[in-house]
Simulated assay, not measured.
Amino acid sequence: MEPPPGTAEEPELRHVEKDVLIPKMMREKARELCSEKVQAFTKCCQESGFLMVIKCQQENAALKECLTTYYNDPAFYEECKIEYLKQREEFRVTGIPAKQRQQKLPTST
């Protein structure tokens, strides 16, 4: 039996890829995109010590809102999924994980 049109090109994702690896990539990218809010919250916590729970509520709320916006965005998920699939394909071709490929780039002297 032939697959429905359009599904043959859609790569299969394992459960761990859909539910763990892609969301992990989303969290990392969202932290970069919300870096100002991350820095503000971190600074507040460092300055407040034990009172950070009380004093940093505003910064924490702003950070959560920023991150949640990305986590709940289907387009952002698709963007991360495409990037993940590209990295997975490169790994399958080269056998070298993306982090090691980035570290071993030749340097010009």
Results as ranks from 00 to 15, higher is better:
residue 29 K to D: 15
residue 94 T to E: 05
residue 79 E to D: 03
residue 43 K to P: 01
residue 40 A to I: 02
residue 66 C to M: 02
residue 7 T to V: 12
residue 31 R to H: 13
residue 102 Q to L: 15
residue 13 L to N: 02
residue 21 L to F: 07
residue 13 L to Q: 04
residue 71 Y to E: 10
residue 89 E to Q: 13
residue 24 K to I: 07
residue 77 Y to A: 12
residue 53 V to Y: 08
residue 29 K to H: 13
residue 42 T to D: 07
residue 93 V to I: 15
residue 47 E to W: 01
residue 29 K to T: 15
residue 45 C to Y: 03
residue 62 A to M: 00
residue 89 E to A: 13
residue 71 Y to M: 09
residue 41 F to D: 05
residue 4 P to M: 06
residue 61 A to M: 08
residue 106 P to S: 12
residue 12 E to C: 02
residue 51 L to P: 04
residue 90 E to W: 06
residue 56 C to Q: 09
residue 45 C to G: 13
residue 109 T to R: 15
residue 99 K to H: 12
residue 44 C to L: 09
residue 39 Q to H: 08
residue 27 R to K: 14
residue 32 E to V: 11
residue 37 K to Q: 15
residue 86 K to C: 09
residue 58 Q to N: 08
residue 39 Q to M: 14
residue 61 A to Q: 12
residue 24 K to C: 13
residue 68 T to F: 03
residue 85 L to D: 08
residue 14 R to T: 12
residue 96 I to F: 10
residue 65 E to I: 00
residue 3 P to Q: 08
residue 50 F to N: 02
residue 12 E to K: 02
residue 18 K to H: 05
residue 37 K to T: 13
residue 51 L to M: 11
residue 103 Q to I: 09
residue 2 E to I: 00
residue 54 I to D: 11
residue 23 P to S: 08
residue 46 Q to S: 12
residue 82 I to P: 00
residue 2 E to W: 00
residue 94 T to P: 01
residue 66 C to Q: 07
residue 108 S to Y: 14
residue 27 R to I: 15
residue 101 R to A: 10
residue 17 E to F: 04
residue 71 Y to D: 05
residue 77 Y to N: 12
residue 73 D to F: 01
residue 85 L to A: 01
residue 98 A to L: 11
residue 72 N to V: 00
